[in-house]
């Protein structure tokens, strides 16, 4: 694929991302999780750094207000100073091994946070470098270099091999998925089309789309829709109940994406604690990391499912 102009002009825009096959949530091959679990349950906090004065990229501004947007900078900085530590205490109490959506610059700015995450054995996956630097408009060479840079940074700080990718501020190019697969990334969280893992169509290699969620995301629940913390807790429980029920037939995935700068507040942390505790107390739940869920799916289901879907679609 040649490098695209930016913004991508209408004649080069596709009506379908062409990243996956149609696959109705009916009569699919059964997914079985380890120990017969119904739901693969994972918690994915976004640990982020928003720059006070980011460089202006080709797309939108990174801030809500003209710079310096000290109000929103302060709200996000709260996450690293206060919210992260309160959230970490809660996850410890509940015995949850988190999978961290990480702006890797956090490792440089706040090595204390890096140590707190690696000491706990949390998985670190990519959320880019800063949440104020977007993937939009990168050339192929730049985007590939960006992916490698993030992987190297995580490996250098933690010894971990990068497995997962949630693009910073959910910004993509049309070739992001191809590059992720070629660079050995195993799962993407940028697609919201399913409640089960799905194969992603990539030009070479393998990539699985793992269910993240904008529905059980604290940002959506508390900010976009303006719900209360207790309503958010009810949302998590209702989402869990349904996926747990459906998981009796075929394994489902439930993700609770968090932001320490949203959920770490004194008025929000306890409703979250109650909701997570509710999920943790059920039998038949696989408490996993993103890497583990994607790995299980790739090892047991991905290839067969991709062949089946290709066949149904009449693809060679």
């Amino acid at each position: 694929m040649a490098d695209l102009p930016w913004p991508i002009p209408p004649e080069l825009r596709a009506e379908d991302p062409d990243l996956y096959y149609f696959n109705p949530y009916v009569d699919r091959p059964k997914i079985e999780w380890p120990d017969g679990a119904r739901v693969a349950f994972w918690v994915a906090p976004n640990v982020e750094f928003y720059e006070l004065h980011p460089p202006r990229g080709p797309a939108r501004s990174s801030w809500f207000r003209p710079e310096p947007d000290v109000l929103h900078y302060g709200i996000r900085d709260y996450g690293n100073r206060v919210g992260f530590w309160r959230m970490a205490d809660l996850l410890d109490e509940l015995g949850i091994t988190a999978s961290i959506s990480l702006n890797v610059a956090v490792l440089d700015h706040f090595p204390e946070i890096g140590k707190a995450m690696t000491d706990r054995g949390w998985e670190l996956f990519s959320h880019g470098v800063y949440n104020t630097r977007y993937q939009y408009a990168m050339s192929e060479e730049q985007e590939r270099g960006f992916i490698r840079h993030v992987a190297e940074t995580i490996h250098r700080h933690s010894g971990q091999t990068l497995a997962g990718w949630l693009s910073p501020a959910l910004t993509n190019t049309p070739r992001t998925m191809d590059l992720l697969a070629e660079e050995g990334i195993r799962y993407t969280l940028d697609l919201f089309h399913d409640d089960q893992p799905q194969p992603v169509k990539v030009r070479s290699g393998r990539l699985v789309s793992l269910p993240y969620s904008l529905e059980t995301n604290d940002w959506t629940a508390l900010h976009t829709t303006g719900g209360t913390p207790r309503q958010y807790a009810e949302t998590i429980k209702a989402q869990f109940d349904q996926l747990y029920a459906e998981g009796a037939e075929s394994g489902t995935v439930m993700c609770v994406p968090l932001h320490p700068w949203m959920i770490g507040y004194p008025h929000r942390i306890r409703p979250l604690a109650e909701a997570l505790d509710y999920c943790m107390q059920h039998d038949g739940v696989w408490h996993a990391t993103g890497r583990e869920i994607a790995g299980w799916y790739l090892d047991h289901y991905h290839d067969a499912e991709l062949s089946r879907l290709r066949g149904l679609a009449g693809d060679a």
Binding site: G57, D77, A105, D108, H109, F110, P111, R133, A137, S139
Partner: peptide
Amino acid sequence: MAVHPSYLDYPLRKRGMDHVHYAF
């Protein structure tokens, strides 16, 4: 198109904050 090379450069990426007002 590509992003400007400075968009992939991080001059303030070091321990602490990206401004002068307080320490972490």
